[in-house]
Design a protein around this nucleic acid. Sequence first.
DNA 1: TATGCAGCTGCAATCTCTTGCATCTATAAT
DNA 2: ATTATAGATGCAAGAGATTGCAGCTGCATA
Lengths: 139, 139
Amino acid sequence: MAKSGEILGKLTAQGYRITPQRIMILDAVENADDHISAEEIFTLVCLQYPNVNISTVYRTLELLKQLELVTETDFGDGRVRYHSIKKGHHHHLVCQKCGGIIDMEESVFTPLRESLLKQYGFDADIHHLAIFGTCKKCR
Amino acid sequence: MAKSGEILGKLTAQGYRITPQRIMILDAVENADDHISAEEIFTLVCLQYPNVNISTVYRTLELLKQLELVTETDFGDGRVRYHSIKKGHHHHLVCQKCGGIIDMEESVFTPLRESLLKQYGFDADIHHLAIFGTCKKCR
DNA sequence: TATGCAGCTGCAATCTCTTGCATCTATAAT
DNA sequence: ATTATAGATGCAAGAGATTGCAGCTGCATA
């Protein structure tokens, strides 16, 4: 809430408009305790302004993603979740047996990014990745 | 075609049934020149047997995926594609600017897998991953 | 060869997400 | 304050994928 002004400034600076819908959607992502789905955002925004359309939510999230203000992560449960970039970059290890999610440091990917850059000249854009497998307990 | 017998044997061994639909779906994946989508498989199978249902295609692919006979890759174009595991494990670098796809060796992921195992005790199941970013030409 | 049934299929409904289009509006220029 | 317009929204249709359920069938057994 307090800081969403900064982000709104970024939108304006890049020629995008500040609309009430965007403010409410952004607030919902910023104030979420965890990774939040489009449907959850939609429900929250509807409490304030019942006329919002779910497609506006998706389009706004797409925009925020392009501007690198939020990240999108697919935890493999059929719906993608969003997270404010202000709360830090991190990745997830998703156990396919117990469903548990382990958060991991972004730095684990540094060697991979470097070798992709060296071997393939490819600048990998790995922001918020979920990797599937089997956790310690379930092995 | 020639080798799908082996796979059918694996199905039987694990208590799954061999049905005409499964044979046709499996053949479609095995004979595909490239990564093939569910819709494409469906179209191919329909030529032989117009009564197949798309949900059978999805369910069969899900089964083959669980049995590690095919891999699923999301190239980010709105539909997931499948690939026979017999044609080898590999990963893809997808350029978000030009849309180009670079294939890469599985071995690039070995150090990452090892550090996940060491640091988190997590056995990562990275079969066929698409990583997004910017390729050499577009940087 | 006939039978029983777990497992598979087809169908239809549903879910998540995207897209085209007409209308509306935030914003910059007047 | 008014106006023009590029950009945003709402609506509805649609695409890809999943799911519940009734009925069908591969295949193990007798």
